[in-house]
């Protein structure tokens, strides 16, 4: 498929999402909002996980912080959009500082640290009851208008966020930043040696991967009108988002969107039928993804699939 065809298909897809209020019921509109929202999160994760190849599992920390930053500033009197912008900048700054500290870890240690950050932020928010309402959660000023109007507003908002992250992705992909990030992914020491400021590049990628999660979180808080720590900092989200990105093809421009869409439609399909087993189904999707689609849907390679199925440890020496 040529790049131009992909852009056209993407445009059609965005138009279809945006048009759901015209032709579909509220439930479908809600699904469209969720798809746009998770697409933005998966595109964000792609900066650090896809381009740089760092196993980051801190999406939920950024999303959750965004929820609280947006909700609290909104409660303090900032207009809604102002609160979203604040959340974006706040989460971006948080990630930049954090990145300087933890991005020198590699591999498993980075993965564990990024997991731990979700927990620490969640625990801090839960125990800071005076400010955040603790485990009781926090009410966010509701958007005026009927449910239909609210849904339409937030569909538009989530699509705009998704398109913004997409535009940044395209820019990074074509820019020297993207090239440098790919160099780091393939050989970090060699990247350093050819003059890539690896620390700065990684911090930029990590910040990009965080800030739009903050926007999404803040918009989500305004949309639902209520947030609590367990919903905002869900371990499930922190793994779901990378899985969506991997499902489509990590490090590609369209992969996160394809993956998110496939994942959520699949989940929707099974959810309705096997509500009791929804986590197991997510698990099964992951297992299938790892064994049958190692490069994601956009890079299906049947030869790799066969190799994977017949492969043994002794043959699969690390490159």
């Amino acid at each position: 498929m040529s790049q131009a065809t992909r852009y056209v298909l993407f445009a059609i897809w965005v138009a279809a999402l945006a048009a759901t209020p015209l032709w579909a019921d509220n439930y479908t509109v809600r699904l469209a909002i969720i798809i746009a929202m998770y697409s933005a999160l998966a595109l964000s994760w792609n900066f650090i996980g896809g381009f740089v190849g760092y196993p980051s599992f801190s999406t939920a920390a950024f999303f959750g912080l965004g929820c609280y930053a947006g909700a609290l500033t909104q409660k303090a009197g900032l207009p809604m959009v102002g609160a979203w912008v604040f959340a974006t900048l706040f989460v971006g700054a948080f990630a930049a500082v954090l990145g300087v500290i933890i991005l020198r870890l590699r591999g498993h240690y980075f993965a564990i640290a990024s997991f731990a950050i979700v927990e620490v932020v969640r625990l801090v928010i839960s125990s800071w009851g005076d400010l955040t309402g603790g485990g009781d959660g926090l009410n966010v000023p509701l958007v005026t208008g009927g449910p239909d109007a609210v849904a339409q507003t937030f569909l538009a908002v989530m699509i705009v966020i998704m398109l913004t992250v997409f535009a940044v992705t395209v820019f990074v992909d074509r820019n020297r930043l993207g090239f440098g990030l790919r160099c780091i992914k393939q050989n970090e020491n060699a990247a350093d040696m050819v003059g890539v400021d690896t620390t700065r590049y990684k911090v930029i990628a990590y910040t990009l991967s965080a800030m739009f999660c903050g926007t999404v979180g803040a918009a989500y808080a305004s949309w639902t009108g209520y947030i609590d720590p367990s919903d905002s900092f869900s371990v499930l989200m922190t793994v779901k988002v990378p899985v969506m990105c991997l499902l489509g093809g990590a490090g590609t421009v369209f992969g996160p969107i394809v993956g998110t869409t496939a994942f959520l439609l699949l989940e929707e399909f099974f959810w309705a039928r096997f509500l009791e087993y929804n986590r197991a189904i997510l698990g099964a999707v992951i297992v299938i993804l790892i064994f049958f689609l190692p490069g994601g849907l956009l890079r299906i390679s049947y030869r790799d699939m066969v190799k994977r199925l017949t492969g043994r440890v002794s043959q699969g020496a690390a490159p």
């Binding site: 993965a111 997510l282 992951i286 297992v287 790892i290």
Partner: peptide
């Protein structure tokens, strides 16, 4: 065993699944 030599992202995601 089939993915034991792959990057953390793969093995960790698999065991999570």
């Amino acid at each position: 065993n089939r993915v034991v030599n792959e990057p953390v992202l793969t093995t960790l995601t698999l065991t999570f699944g």
